[in-house]
C-alpha cells in the first residue's frame, strides 16, 4: 500500500469546493467547503456566487486536506481535477488550481469526468470495482444509468433523465410543500412520518416508453402532478398532508430509479450495482435498492453519504486508478468542459 501513488483531487463542478487525498484505494483526507447556504435564498445554485466561493475556499480547503492527511503538498505524486461536466465558471477555478499545483510541484495532471468519479469513489469504501459494474448516479445535477466495464476508460451511458435531474425534482417538490432548500434531506425526513397513499405517476414506464426510453428517466411530469395535487387540496380549503405527499412522491422517484437499474443489471448480465450522487443519501432509495438487489441476487454498493455528495476524494480516487492503470495524464492546456460527455473519462 505504501508504494501506491499519493493523489490529490480537486472538485468544483457545482457548489462544493472539495479537496481529497488518497493513496491507492485508501482515503486519507476529504475536505469540503460548501457554499450551499449562500444559495438557499435564491432557491438554487447561482453560478457566480458559487465561483466566488470556490476562489475563496480553495487554498484553505487544500490546506485542511493536507493537515487531515498528515502530508505536505510536496509529497503528492499526481493531481486530479474535475474537468467536467458542471458549471463552466466553477469548473475553471478548480482546473486552474489543479494546473497551478501540478506546475508548481512538477507532477502529472489528470483532468477527469465528474460522473466517472462518482462511480470510482466506491473503491475507497468497498475495494476495487468488479468489471463490469452497473452504476446509478442521482443528484441535483444528474440522473444516469451507466454500464462501466472500466471506470478509467470505458463508461457507457444506458440512459439519463430527459428533463429534470432527480435531485432537482426533490428541490422543486420541497418548495411546493414549503420545505427548505436543498429539498432532499427535508423530504426524506418528512416522508419518514408519512404513508405512501397517493399514486403519483412513474415517468417513462409505460410499455411504449419502455421501448423508446428503456433506461431513461423523467421527473418533470411527476413534479407537476405533485404541484397539481397540492393546489387542488388548497383550492378545496383542505389541509395538505405534507408527510404523506413527501412519502408518496419519494416512492415514485425511487421506484422508477431502482426498477430500471435492476432491469439494466439483468439485461446486461451485471451482478454489481453502485449507487452514487447526492440523492444516494436518501434513506428510502437505499432501502428499496437493497430489497430489490437482494431479490435479484445483485450485490449493492452504496458509498456512505459523505462520499456520495460531490467531494474531492472521488476525484482523487479516479485519479489514483488512472495512475495505477498507466493512463496518460493531460497537458497544462487541458480545457474545462461544462458539457463533457460521460463517455469521455479523461481530458487531454
Amino acid at each position: 500500500m505504501a508504494d501506491e501513488p499519493l493523489v490529490l483531487g480537486i472538485e468544483t463542478s457545482c457548489d462544493e469546493t472539495g479537496v481529497g487525498i488518497v493513496r491507492g484505494t485508501d482515503l486519507l483526507a476529504d475536505a469540503v467547503a460548501s457554499s450551499v447556504d449562500a444559495h438557499a435564498r435564491f432557491g438554487g445554485v447561482v453560478p457566480e456566487v458559487a465561483s466566488r466561493a470556490h476562489l475563496e475556499a480553495m487554498v484553505p480547503t487544500i490546506r485542511r486536506a493536507c493537515d487531515d492527511a498528515g502530508i505536505a503538498l510536496s509529497d503528492v505524486d499526481a493531481v486530479a481535477v474535475t474537468a467536467g461536466p458542471g458549471l463552466a465558471g466553477a469548473l475553471l477555478v478548480g482546473v486552474a488550481s489543479a494546473k497551478a499545483l501540478a506546475l508548481s510541484l512538477g507532477k502529472p495532471l489528470y483532468g477527469i469526468n465528474h460522473l466517472a468519479a462518482h462511480v470510482a469513489v466506491d473503491q475507497l469504501q468497498h475495494g476495487r470495482l468488479p468489471e463490469p459494474t452497473m452504476a446509478l448516479l442521482v443528484s441535483g445535477g444528474h440522473s444516469s444509468l451507466l454500464l462501466v466495464p472500466d471506470v478509467t476508460a470505458d463508461v457507457r451511458p444506458l440512459g439519463a433523465t430527459i428533463d429534470d435531474a432527480a435531485g432537482e425534482a426533490f428541490d422543486k417538490v420541497a418548495r411546493v410543500l414549503g420545505l427548505p432548500f436543498p429539498g432532499g434531506p427535508h423530504i426524506d425526513r418528512a416522508a419518514a412520518d408519512g404513508s405512501i397513499v397517493i399514486d403519483f405517476p412513474r415517468g417513462l414506464t409505460s410499455s411504449r416508453d419502455m421501448e423508446r426510453h428503456r433506461f431513461d428517466f423523467s421527473f418533470s411530469g411527476l413534479k407537476t402532478a405533485v404541484a397539481r395535487w397540492v393546489e387542488a387540496r388548497e383550492a378545496a380549503g383542505e389541509p395538505v398532508p405534507v408527510t404523506d405527499v413527501a412519502a408518496s412522491f419519494q416512492e415514485a422517484v425511487v421506484d422508477v430509479l431502482t426498477r430500471k437499474a435492476l432491469l439494466a443489471c439483468r439485461e446486461n448480465g451485471v451482478d454489481h450495482l453502485v449507487v452514487g450522487g447526492g440523492v444516494a443519501a436518501n434513506s428510502r432509495l437505499r432501502a428499496l435498492a437493497q430489497e430489490r438487489c437482494d431479490d435479484a441476487g445483485v450485490t449493492l454498493r452504496v458509498p456512505r453519504p459523505a462520499l456520495c455528495t460531490d467531494n474531492g476524494a472521488m476525484v482523487a480516487a479516479l485519479g489514483a486508478e488512472m495512475v495505477r492503470r498507466g493512463r496518460s495524464p493531460g497537458g497544462s492546456g487541458l480545457p474545462a468542459d461544462s458539457s463533457l460527455p460521460v463517455t469521455q473519462v479523461s481530458v487531454q
Binding site: 457566480e48 465561483s51 466566488r52 470556490h54 476562489l55 480553495m58 487554498v59 487544500i62 490546506r63 503538498l73 463552466a88 465558471g89 475553471l92 477555478v93 486552474a96 488550481s97 494546473k99 497551478a100 499545483l101 506546475l103 508548481s104 510541484l105
Partner: peptide
Amino acid sequence: PFTGLRVGVVTARVMGEAL
C-alpha cells in the same frame, strides 16, 4: 471580466501555497 480574472488570481494563490 470575473471568470478570466479568477483564473489568474487562483493560479497565483495556489502557486504561492505550493511553493
